[in-house]
Simulated scan of single mutants.
Amino acid sequence: MAEPGPFRSPASAVQLSGRLLCWCLAAAMASAAVDAVLDPRARWWGTMWTLPWWLACAAVLAWSVLRAREKADRPPPHDSVPSDWEQAA
């Protein structure tokens, strides 16, 4: 039996996109902190520090689409009565 590696984990696409989102947000906050504290003068920095923010936006879109598909594909429980909160949602 093959052991799961870093690219063969049992995590779903929703979990992986959520992890990507977290890492993009961490990188975006770190780059914003570097920009605020160190104020780099390199020409490429103006476009480079915004890159993680754009990646975070793309990861949010991917995660929301995958999560909506996951919730739509899940069958409702048969033995439970929906509460008012679940009916409103």
Rank of each mutant, 00 (worst) to 15 (best):
M48Q: 12
V37D: 09
G5C: 05
L61W: 09
A2V: 06
V60D: 07
A58S: 09
V37Y: 08
S17L: 12
D79W: 10
T47G: 14
S80M: 10
W53D: 00
E86P: 00
L66G: 05
S9H: 02
R43A: 15
S12F: 02
P75A: 10
L61Q: 06
S31M: 15
A72K: 13
S83P: 07
A2E: 10
A72D: 15
R8F: 05
L51D: 11
L25C: 12
L25M: 14
R67T: 13
P76E: 08
R8L: 04
S83W: 08
P52Q: 03
A88M: 06
S80L: 13
S12L: 00
A59G: 09
V37N: 03
F7V: 11
P76I: 07
W63E: 01
L20P: 01
F7Y: 14
M48T: 11
L51Q: 10
A58T: 02
L38Q: 00
R41P: 03
A33F: 08
A59I: 05
D84E: 12
W23N: 15
R43Q: 09
A72F: 07
R19I: 08
D84W: 07
A33P: 01
A13Q: 12
D79M: 08
L38S: 03
G46M: 05
A2C: 02
A68N: 07
A11V: 05
E86L: 10
D35G: 09
D79V: 06
M29F: 14
R41E: 09
A42S: 15
